[in-house]
Amino acid sequence: MNSKEKAAKIIRIISVPPIMALSLLLVAFFFKNEIYNRQQDFVFSIAALVVFPILAYPASEIFIRNKENKRERQRNFAFVFSLIGYTALLIYGAVFKVSSDMTAISLTYFLTVVILTLFNKIFKIKASGHAASCTSPLIFFIYFWGWPLIFPCGIAFTAILWSSLELKRHSLKEFFIGAGICILSVDLSLFGVWFI
Rank of each mutant, 00 (worst) to 15 (best):
residue 1 M to V: 11
residue 3 S to W: 01
residue 3 S to F: 01
residue 4 K to P: 03
residue 5 E to H: 10
residue 6 K to C: 04
residue 7 A to V: 14
residue 15 S to N: 13
residue 18 P to M: 04
residue 19 I to Y: 11
residue 20 M to G: 06
residue 21 A to G: 08
residue 23 S to W: 03
residue 27 V to L: 14
residue 31 F to Q: 09
residue 32 K to S: 14
residue 33 N to S: 15
residue 33 N to P: 06
residue 33 N to G: 07
residue 34 E to G: 06
residue 36 Y to D: 08
residue 36 Y to S: 13
residue 37 N to T: 06
residue 38 R to H: 04
residue 38 R to E: 14
residue 39 Q to K: 13
residue 40 Q to V: 09
residue 42 F to E: 12
residue 43 V to F: 10
residue 44 F to A: 14
residue 45 S to E: 04
residue 49 L to Y: 11
residue 49 L to F: 10
residue 51 V to Y: 01
residue 52 F to L: 15
residue 54 I to P: 05
residue 55 L to F: 11
residue 58 P to Q: 07
residue 62 I to W: 06
residue 62 I to Q: 11
residue 62 I to H: 06
residue 65 R to Y: 02
residue 68 E to R: 07
residue 70 K to Q: 05
residue 74 Q to S: 06
residue 75 R to N: 12
residue 76 N to C: 02
residue 79 F to V: 08
residue 80 V to A: 09
residue 82 S to I: 00
residue 83 L to C: 08
residue 86 Y to W: 01
residue 88 A to I: 01
residue 89 L to W: 01
residue 90 L to H: 01
residue 91 I to C: 06
residue 94 A to E: 11
residue 95 V to F: 04
residue 99 S to V: 07
residue 101 D to I: 05
residue 102 M to G: 00
residue 102 M to Q: 04
residue 104 A to I: 04
residue 104 A to Q: 04
residue 104 A to G: 12
residue 105 I to S: 01
residue 105 I to A: 00
residue 108 T to F: 00
residue 115 I to P: 03
residue 116 L to D: 03
residue 119 F to G: 05
residue 127 A to K: 05
residue 129 G to S: 11
residue 132 A to V: 02
residue 133 S to Q: 12
residue 138 L to S: 13
residue 139 I to N: 03
residue 141 F to R: 11
residue 143 Y to M: 09
residue 144 F to A: 10
residue 146 G to L: 11
residue 147 W to L: 14
residue 148 P to L: 09
residue 150 I to K: 07
residue 150 I to Q: 11
residue 153 C to R: 05
residue 154 G to L: 09
residue 155 I to T: 06
residue 156 A to P: 01
residue 158 T to A: 15
residue 159 A to Y: 01
residue 159 A to F: 02
residue 160 I to V: 15
residue 164 S to N: 13
residue 166 E to W: 00
residue 167 L to K: 10
residue 173 K to Y: 06
residue 173 K to L: 12
residue 173 K to I: 10
residue 175 F to H: 07
residue 175 F to T: 07
residue 177 I to N: 10
residue 178 G to R: 03
residue 183 I to A: 15
residue 184 L to P: 09
residue 186 V to N: 06
residue 189 S to D: 05
residue 190 L to E: 04
residue 193 V to K: 12
residue 194 W to Q: 13
residue 195 F to D: 04
residue 195 F to V: 15
residue 196 I to K: 07
